[in-house]
Nucleic acid binder design. Structure first.
Length: 457
DNA sequence: CTAGGGTTAG
């Protein structure tokens, strides 16, 4: 009895330390408890799995299974759901599938949340058809979808570019008696904003209020971000002020949104002010706010300070992610230290970041700007994935170096593989050919572009 | 206890 009561107390401690992101203290409480003869139970470990996967990394959470087996505690469906959720958070689809399989093999029956999370994972890595298959599996297993199942579907459709389908699903569910949650409205408002459908977002915001809900911090942050996207900065900053006045800035989300937006349009001084305000208000850094601050330092040319933050991140028990390294690599490029940037890309490889498309794009652009276009082309050849940024940058810079024929070849390669390219880069090639005496080639290129774009539909 | 908002490049 005493032991049970104490374990419950232990778990209350663990929850509050995890909430305060003090994993080290949570761990030391466990050590003390064991010393007093109070053993952690399945709930303790499940909370830890969740905390490690949120605050540190998927691997650190997964390694808890080992600790559990040493403590002779068998994981349950919650342990596996938390791990699948951790894998999903890190876009590790194959890990999610492995865990699902592992759970089945250990005789642990998946519940609706196991399926929800797996479906979420498929949507997150851009596989909506497979996500839909998971929905079929839910039915086949005789489980009932829950409201979250539909939220995940609506969100997944929006994130994969099917905003209209998401809206149709929403309306059809409503006709069948589905009562939207606040989350559902937030998902749709975000989806409509990102699709540039501001009117629809505004209507959904009205519907939210008409349903008797109050907008929460997430609603506010979503709408604020939407303002910045449509370059209505004053309106966005007003929303931030309203959030501050109403006590909605209890975390770093709103501040990071504002600082990120201000950095993007070069308003560094204001960005610094808001970042200071956030820290003055006692909001502790998490990885995203660290990344935002590193970006701020890079834009101010304070690379030394940025590097110092890397140490601070790791000392605090966090792990730098792809954003951290990419921001730094871009900072190095913009500061003219291309060798440093290339070195850092290698460093990323060693650390197991194998698809660093954005970072590679930064280096390609950096090489071009440093006049090393042939090196940029070489890098381009070696990249296993390229996107519209890669091509836009290279094509534009090839034109600046008057290598229009090479640019033209790349441009066509880009468009025929179904990717978009910046209008200005297209223009640069056509104008370049035309004004350097290749009018015929310019015309040919234009019609080839048109043809390639037609074939796609 | 797992679903919604924040950070990167042309």
């Amino acid at each position: 009895m005493v032991g049970k009561l104490s374990t419950r107390l232990l778990n209350i401690c663990i929850v509050s330390f995890c909430k305060a992101r003090q994993l080290d203290r949570a761990e030391s409480v466990i050590v003390d408890a064991i010393r007093l003869g109070v053993l952690p139970n399945i709930v303790t470990y499940n909370k830890l799995i969740d905390a490690y996967s949120c605050l540190v990394s998927f691997d650190s959470a997964y390694s808890l299974l080992q600790r559990m087996s040493e403590a002779r505690i068998n994981p349950d469906v919650v342990s596996y759901n938390s791990l699948i959720s951790g894998a999903t958070r890190n876009c590790l689809l194959s890990k999610s599938l492995d865990l699902f399989e592992e759970m089945l093999q250990r005789g642990i029956a998946p519940d609706i949340w196991s399926f929800n999370t797996l479906m979420h994972c498929f949507f997150k890595v851009g596989k909506p058809e497979e996500a839909n298959q998971v929905f079929m599996d839910i039915i086949r297993h005789g489980l009932s979808p829950c409201p979250a199942t539909f939220n995940i579907m609506i969100n997944g459709l929006c994130k994969n570019g099917y905003t209209s389908n998401a809206l149709m699903l929403f309306r059809s569910l409503q006709r069948h008696g589905f009562v939207p949650q606040l989350i559902t409205y937030n998902i749709l408002i975000n989806g409509l904003c990102k699709a540039g459908r501001l009117g629809g977002a505004r209507r959904m915001l009205k519907e939210l209020a008409a349903s008797g809900y109050m907008p929460n911090a997430i609603t506010y942050t979503t709408v604020m971000k939407c303002c910045f996207r449509s370059r209505r900065f004053d309106q966005g900053l007003e929303i931030l002020q309203e959030m501050i006045d109403n006590g909605y800035t209890f975390d770093g989300f709103a501040y990071c949104t504002v600082v990120g937006a201000l950095i993007k349009c070069g308003r560094i001084k204001e960005a610094t002010d808001y970042m200071d305000q956030m820290m003055r208000n006692g909001i502790e850094h998490d990885l995203v706010s660290y990344n935002t601050l590193i970006n701020l330092y890079c834009k101010e040319g304070k690379l030394e300070d940025a590097y110092q933050l890397l140490d601070e991140i790791e000392e605090g028990g966090l792990e730098c992610d792809e954003y951290t390294h990419t921001i730094l690599i871009d900072g190095l490029c913009k500061a003219g230290n291309i060798e440093g940037a290339q070195q850092h890309i290698k460093h990323m490889n060693v650390m197991g970041f194998n698809l660093h498309l954005v970072a590679s794009n930064c280096v390609v652009d950096g090489l071009c700007k440093a006049g090393q276009i042939d090196h940029a082309l070489k890098m381009f050849e070696s990249m296993e994935k390229r996107d519209s940024f890669t091509y836009s940058s290279l094509v534009y810079n090839l034109c600046k170096a008057r290598r229009y024929h090479c640019a033209s070849k790349l441009l066509l390669g880009c468009i025929s593989s179904g990717m978009k390219i910046l209008r200005s880069s297209q223009r640069a090639v056509i104008d370049g050919l035309r004004y350097s005496g290749f009018q015929k080639e310019a015309r040919k290129l234009k019609s080839k572009i048109r043809l390639a774009q037609m074939v796609q539909f």
